[in-house]
Design a protein around this nucleic acid. Structure first.
Lengths: 254, 254
DNA sequence: AGGTAACGCCGCACGTCGTACGATAACGGC
DNA sequence: GCCGTTATCGTACGACGTGCGGCGTTACCT
């Protein structure tokens, strides 16, 4: 129910795992698994049941191996999550449409990330400061920066623009994914939830006291019944963000 | 280490707690605690040690009470988190500076939320779809909407603008807070972390392959050594977002 | 004043988790 | 064939949320 998650692995061990620096065993029984296989199983589990269901025991079960065997390949769960992260970073496209301008490129970056988070919602719960310096993460960072390369921005500004996009997408995808998962997480559909909350709220909530919230809340509630609407809200915000960046780039090159 | 968190309480029970609908006991021993006291203790604990340290046992210890006593006041941990959330929502200011325009008001909303998240970083880990419909949350929503009331936007657009701001702030504060907490979480300062990662990365990472990431990464790394820089990055993004909203409002009223 | 129903408090127990430890067995190189 | 290395995994510990049931306190009713 509660918690941190990390990418808090020992950076030395994580990097060794990520870049394949482990020196290949010579003696002893043949390994039945690989870090790769374990990461794949863990990702499947997390995709299907969420990060809270990701336990070493469950991963081991999936691989038909005893729990403690995993620790031969991976120093702890934290490093396993690092490996999972870098692996899914490898899924995003790494080419832009021919002849696209910076705006189209940035929009692609945003949408690729939107898609990635939707495929792997558990990423939202993993704390990511001190990025996992794996090959895929670096490639992704480089690719995203290329969206705004050569537009007259300073290095730091390029980083800030990409951060802005990432931050927005992260926030937007978070609410969208939570909306999608709300039913399965709570066992209550939106309708059922409102059936319970609505009448109770009516008893205690005075619309006259908060008229704007009442009005807008009703409008938003109605609109979001329509399927796919989080996506429209995402697109709306993205347009604003891109407009803001456009104004900045124009000012910068003037 | 891993997990979901929720605001996944039974909505009926949460609402009763939030609005004080519990019908006041008559018989039996005098209660030694109150939901309020429990929430305060839980918030203190979560502020100090993070959401992963928030356990019923630890909260009970803090109140010098047996663990199971808490369940007299609160049906489960999920509802407790709902109460904690609504309580901290009450902390944000609820008045705008006299005569401020929508842009100044929106900026205040963003900064108030930035501050709130910094005071209570555990909020970042709580899943918030299906908002906790408590009095403070509703008041906050109403207040934030007032920032863009009367600017010619449709109800739905007002909601989208506030969502955009919230999403951006959420994302930005997340990276800033994680940066601040990285040292205490991992026991490694940024310098120590880099001392370990740097040399290892140099062995495997080819700057020629990802020249932009190398260049910008170096520039950003240097800049972020300066304390308080996440705040500047936040301000940068916020300006862009507000510019984007400005363009929208102008187009809308034209 | 005494009885009783309602209620707060809490010890115990179950099944979950990550993972430390040490025994055992499989294998490569000599 | 032997030995050192390494993979596998059973057991155990201390954390977690919380269901259950007993105990003791209190307020109302008679």
């Amino acid at each position: 129910m509660t918690a941190d998650s990390s990418s808090a692995g020992d950076p030395r061990r994580s990097l060794e795992l990520l870049w394949g620096l482990v020196p290949a065993r010579r003696r002893g029984p043949r390994p039945r698994l690989s870090v790769e296989e374990i990461a794949v199983a863990a990702i499947e589990l997390a995709d299907a049941e969420g990060l809270s269901a990701l336990s070493m025991r469950r991963v081991a079960d999936r691989l038909k191996v005893a729990t403690m065997s995993l620790y031969t390949y991976v120093p702890s769960k934290a490093e396993l999550i690092d490996v999972m992260l870098d692996r899914v970073y490898g899924e995003t496209p790494k080419t832009y449409a021919e002849g696209a301008g910076w705006r189209a490129r940035l929009e692609q970056v945003a949408r690729d990330n939107w898609d990635l988070y939707h495929r792997h919602p558990w990423m939202l719960q993993v704390v990511m400061h001190r990025p996992v310096l794996g090959p895929n993460m670096i490639a992704k960072f480089d690719f995203e920066l290329r969206a705004v390369e050569g537009e007259g921005l300073a290095d730091l500004e390029m980083d800030q623009v990409i951060s802005l996009i990432s931050n927005y997408v992260h926030g937007a995808v978070r609410s969208a994914v939570e909306a999608m998962q709300a039913e399965s997480r709570t066992g209550l559909s939106d309708a059922q939830w409102w059936e319970i909350s609505g009448p109770l709220l009516e008893k205690v909530f005075d619309p006259a006291q908060f008229p704007i919230a009442a009005r807008v809340g009703a409008a938003a509630g109605e609109a979001y019944e329509a399927v796919g609407d989080p996506e429209r809200a995402f697109a709306f915000g993205l347009e604003r963000v891109l407009d803001g960046i456009e104004a900045f780039i124009e000012k910068r090159s003037a």
